[in-house]
Design a protein around this nucleic acid. Structure first.
Length: 417
RNA sequence: GCGGCUGUAGCUCAGUUGGUUAGAGCGCCUGACUGUGACUCAGGAGGUCGCGGGUUCGAGCCCCGUCAGCCGCCCCA
């Protein structure tokens, strides 16, 4: 077999790594503006962490997890998502003492899925989780955080915030019952997939792509009709808050989550630019999860975003630094150049030092690495304790004293990473 | 897991109804140019045509399998 990366994995070469770094650095900075501290959990956990979270009948658990026994016979799983691991940490680190608590994370996740563009077996997510606040303001703030992130990544025009509410546990249960009753009446006309979903996860039928299913769903009872007063008030408060912040959103009455620990706000930032992989950020309120996993009852809200998908939407590549190129001429200058490169790097300049070739070759190299300036260092200059500084954009040359080089280069901000 | 499309140089691609030694552009290397990049010109390297099998006098081209990418479905906590 040819040497190739494992299916669904890929190498990040410098250009793409730079985009990844830019994205995570931006997310980290904005998260900190909202008071979120970074948490990093291991990439694998006891399998039970995810089974307990997801139930052991879902596709993710039964078909898509990278699960293995370690040498001690423990069943471990590469994390397929961030939230379960964060909640595990929240419980095992006793973080309930610190609520309200805002956490940010970023890193690789693993799912055994059929790969496509924007969908990989090792993929990366950024996410935020806000524990201990049951107020609508918490939902509003995490959405506002996402809005600001997308704006600073230049993606505001390419994404839409879709919003819905599932109400509290009572409303949700009432709705599910009403929906199932309605769908059973149309059982014969549902797609094969949806007939299976009717038993396993009826709410999922709401976002079926089957045309006939869609017609049936269009006549289904609305979730809002099942809201009790508390649920209706909550949703109204969320919408009011978003309006007050000037955040645009689109109400999506069929946007739901299949798990019982979700309640109230559910939202997704979607795009039409990535084909079937249209969701770039997905989130919602999950008040029941911490308790379900064995911790103290703790309200929580948050979201996770796919780094690969966000990166694909970004068109402007962040630029790497433009180095200063050193062009020594002759053996004496070669030795001096090595030292000079070191001094300039200590002063914070990116420096490119080619090892061979005549002046022409080295100048070509300077051009190829997109240097902003070349320092030409020959016997004549050395004897005078100076060097020539050539601006590679304008082509103009100046002479600078060796001991004042950093000052002479101060104008080249592009060379300071 | 299901259905479909596509794999030829580092990249983007051409390659006739199956017919000598598989091409182009870009990129890369060298020289024109021994102290000055970009532009230009000349030359060069780079391929098991994804991999394996089959049909044929002969396969990049046809058939089967397989691996990978992509599109849709499923799933998306």
């Amino acid at each position: 077999m040819a040497l190739q990366p494992v299916r669904g994995t890929r190498d990040l070469l410098p250009e793409e790594s730079l985009r990844y770094r830019h994205l995570t650095a931006t997310a980290r900075r904005i998260a900190s503006l909202y008071g979120f501290g970074e948490i990093a959990t291991p990439v694998f956990e006891f399998t039970d962490v995810f089974k307990r979270n997801l139930g052991d009948t879902t596709d993710v658990v039964t078909k898509e997890m990278y699960t293995f026994d370690d040498r001690g016979g423990e069943s471990l799983t590469l994390r397929p998502e961030g939230t379960a691991a964060i909640v595990r940490a929240f419980i095992s680190e006793g973080l309930a003492q610190q609520v309200p608590l805002r956490l940010y994370y970023e890193g690789p996740m693993f799912r055994y899925e059929r790969p496509q563009k924007g969908r990989y077996r090792q993929f990366h997510q950024i996410g935020v989780e806000f524990f201990g606040a049951s107020e609508p303001q918490a939902d509003i703030e995490v959405m506002a955080l996402a809005v600001q992130l997308l704006a600073e990544l230049g993606l505001s025009d390419k994404t839409v915030l879709e919003l819905n509410s599932m109400g509290d546990a009572d409303s949700r249960t009432a709705y599910r019952e009403g929906l199932v009753t309605y769908l059973r009446d149309h059982h014969a006309h549902l797609s094969d997939d949806s007939r299976i979903r009717l038993d396993k996860n009826p709410l999922r039928i709401l976002d079926s792509k089957d045309e006939n299913d869609r017609r049936i769903v269009a006549g289904a009872p609305s979730i809002a009709a099942s809201f009790n007063a508390l649920s209706a008030d909550y949703f109204a408060a969320v919408k009011e808050g978003l309006d007050a912040l000037g955040i645009a959103y689109k109400l999506s009455p069929t946007l739901v989550r299949g798990f019982d620990y979700y309640c109230h706000s559910v939202f997704e930032f979607t795009t039409t630019h990535l084909g079937a992989q249209g969701t770039v950020i997905g989130g919602g309120r999950y008040d029941g999860l911490v308790e379900m996993m064995g911790g103290p009852a703790t309200p929580a809200t948050g979201w996770a975003g796919g780094i690969e998908r966000l990166a694909m939407l970004m068109q402007a590549d962040p630029k790497p630094p433009r180095p200063i190129a050193l062009v020594p001429i002759g053996e004496t200058a070669e030795r001096a150049a090595l030292r000079m490169a070191q001094d300039l790097r200590r002063a914070g300049f990116a420096v490119d030092l080619g090892y061979k070739g005549n002046v022409g070759r080295r100048m070509k190299r300077a051009n190829k690495v997109n240097a902003c300036a070349a320092i030409i260092l020959g016997d004549d200059e050395l004897a005078a304790g100076a060097a020539k500084v050539k601006d590679l954009d304008s082509g103009t040359e100046t002479t600078a004293a060796l001991d004042a080089l950093p000052a002479a280069l101060a104008g080249y901000a592009a060379a300071k990473p």
